[in-house]
Design a protein around this nucleic acid. Sequence first.
RNA 1: GGUCCCGUAGCCAAGUGGCUAAGGCAAAGGACUGCAACUCCUUGAUCACCGGUUCGAAUCCGGUCGGGACCUCCA
Length: 444
Amino acid sequence: MKIHNTLTNRLEPFQPRHKDTVNMYVCGPTVYNYIQIGNARPVIFFDVVRRYFEFIGYTVNFVSNFTDIDDKIITKALEEQEDEMVIAEKFIAAFYEDVERVGSTTKYLAPRVTEYMSAIIDYIDQLVKQGYAYVVDGDVYFRVAKIDQYGALSGRKIADLETGARVEVNPKKENPLDFTLWKQTPQGKTFPSPWGEGRPGWHTECVAMINDIFGGPIDIHGGGADLMFPHHENEIAQHRAIHGHAIATYWMHNGHLTVDNEKMSKSADNYIFVKDLGGDYMGFRLFTLSTHYRSPLNYTDEALEVYVNEWQKLKRTYTQAFYQLDLAEMLDESATFNAELNRIRTRFMNAMEDDFNTANAITELQQLGKYTNHKTRESNALQQLLGAVRLFDQFFEILGLDPSVKRMTKATRNIYMEWADARKNKNFDKADRLRETLQEKGIL
RNA sequence: GGUCCCGUAGCCAAGUGGCUAAGGCAAAGGACUGCAACUCCUUGAUCACCGGUUCGAAUCCGGUCGGGACCUCCA
């Protein structure tokens, strides 16, 4: 297994810290609105990472947080004249719905900032006591200059950052690059702390959560590329300060999704919420996996349509093979793979092992589709067909695609038999009627 | 202004030093079929441009042009 590590900017062999276990953490959403389709990319990709590791036998401890205290939530709460926590709850529920829509699992630990307040305050307190942070008028800032390796993740140097600083001047900060750990707030929900009533900055939560939940450094820390700087850089800085090392071995970042080659933004009026996408979410999932995760992905209606069609095609292929086996009472759970299927499987797995190259994995999925279509048209190929269906099952499990095909009921089976009979007897009126019924049931 | 990424057939997209540059979509032609749908087969690129390194480059280096990201608590 090779993974591109943003921290070293290299492809590295994956070595878990604990045998047979993968501990991973993915930065979750700030719950102030529905998620847009760009947010769905890490939701889908890291779900695939998890699925793959589980498939090859690892136990995966997957954690992704909710930022439920934030300026944006306060703004939203004021707009809607609602309590901030009500807003947060609403969008957490909406988030889970969207996660399920796109076929990712919601079964993972999802800590919230509000549940971690004391751990966050403790962490900041330690930073202050050890001189890595300073207090000014009830605000607390991290002293970036104390961390030698600051900038290593995002490939920046402190000097460059200072030179090109477009950072707003905050006279309270010793250095414009210093980031907020705690701040007093004029409005919104506040929490008591040694520095007064206020709220934590954004960067401490993940560190506090990871330390509490995993009790030490983890294997994989993931998120969108925009989190590299400053968010992940700041997480690393805080962790180096107290623990002397980066918090995770491998840092993985997915590239951004654009819409019609433009970044999604409210001002550009090209925001697309996952919930509004409508239609075929499996097709959308396939679309997001069709490009390597580190490359940018451009959304257009046409591009999505291509993969919606592709998914329909794969599903049709699978379904036909499945029912052919079902009719023949040959739908065994286990199957042997012949040389061709093994070749496809090996290529698929190799693609996944190569830094989760889902684009190439999907190519193999398509090759399997072609193979299956050939076998569906052959007589006496049921063994190979069974192998194909079971290999499909494996690929679908890894990629999180679900064709939702169930065995035929007795009634449906009878209709199918009647249809076949009618065709054989050239009773085409009847056959066409039955065909329609079967098509409605999704059998044909 | 600073840092970084990208530019492969009409479109999407793998490949990052070496057999004839994967795969998909679209298009055209063909096969199959009671009709249709589905499916299958065949057909396309010297890799933005210029120069360099090398026995050999889409793949490394330099430059030019074009596009994008981050530096603003956006995945």
